[in-house]
Design a protein around this nucleic acid. Structure first.
Length: 281
DNA sequence: TTCCAGGGATATA
DNA sequence: TATATCCATGGA
């Protein structure tokens, strides 16, 4: 094992598969803040402080077990990268974002966050989520928990508009009401295909947002969300044009199989950070 | 001023 | 089923 616990800390000793900037800046999570020498991360009703030291990372919280699962610490990323590196198109992306991991986040938080994410940019997404948490989430003393389903249910369209969600505000209200009525209660037992279909029944959730939710919250690591960056990268990677995003997603899931979600994260991080350089070539 | 952001809903044919 | 257009908002 590459980590151990020590009181309120998790010590990650092998940083060849764990780099905070790679994990947090790969677009899968929004409630983190860069502070001098560390990051502060809030998820659900928990907070942790993340510090990079020489050859180790320290995760400080009051719930080690939660964050061991959250950071996917029992998974073998050396093996995942070896499997993905068999595809030549993956090699640059893996060396660039070698410390990426796929987080195991709270379902409701990911659903709300990614409804907000549609046709939006990461900075604004973060701001809108913080506005919602500050108004609805429990005051934890200097920070706010992500609101519960009950707390979210009390908010109306006008509230989400004021939070900055724009035209997505009515989607949020409808989706929250449907979740409250049990729309997603059995999807843990469903096949990924059925789970995706259930998610896409909710307002504001299409194929891409559903795939992000499946990958980042439901542990369906075989899905490959295609967003605007993967859309741009697809022709460069695969050499085909004229595909819809759903077609690209299905094809890439076929290529990478049970590692498709990981492949997608390495590629997203690489192409989003370096796309301008690619255009200059 | 125009374009873009981890897209989706809706109208139209 | 497939394509076109609209949707708030703010930064580049």
């Amino acid at each position: 094992m590459d980590f151990y616990t020590q009181g309120s800390r998790i010590i990650v000793e092998d940083t060849s598969n764990f780099v905070l900037s790679h994990i947090l800046e790969s677009g899968q999570v929004f409630r983190y803040t860069s502070l001098p020498n560390c990051y502060q991360l809030i998820t659900k009703n928990l907070i942790c402080i993340l510090k990079s030291e020489a050859k180790r990372v320290i995760i400080e919280s009051n719930n080690n077990n939660y964050f061991i699962k959250y950071f996917d610490l029992h998974n073998n990323y050396t093996h995942i990268k070896e499997e993905l590196a068999k595809f030549s198109l993956m090699r640059d992306a893996i060396s660039y974002g070698y410390g990426i991991r796929i987080l195991g986040q709270w379902e409701l938080e990911v659903i709300i966050s990614f409804i907000i994410s549609s046709n939006n940019n990461i900075g604004r997404i973060q701001k809108i989520i913080e506005n919602i948490c500050a108004s609805l989430g429990k005051d934890m003393g200097g920070w706010h928990a992500f609101p519960t389903l009950e707390q979210l249910s009390e908010a109306d369209t006008d509230f989400f508009v004021k939070a900055g969600a724009g035209y997505r505000a009515p989607f949020l209200v409808k989706a929250i009401a449907d979740i409250n009525n049990g729309a997603l209660k059995d999807i843990d037992k469903d096949t990924t295909e059925l789970a995706r279909a259930s998610l896409m029944q909710l307002a504001g959730i299409g194929r891409k947002v559903a795939d992000c939710i499946l990958l980042f919250a439901y542990g369906r690591h075989e899905v490959f969300p295609v967003d605007t960056w993967l859309d741009k990268a697809y022709c460069h990677l695969i050499g085909k044009e004229g595909r819809t995003r759903a077609e690209m997603s299905a094809e890439l899931e076929g290529i990478f199989g049970k590692y498709a979600g990981y492949a997608q994260q390495y590629l997203f991080y690489f192409y989003r950070k370096t796309y301008k350089n690619m255009e200059d070539e």
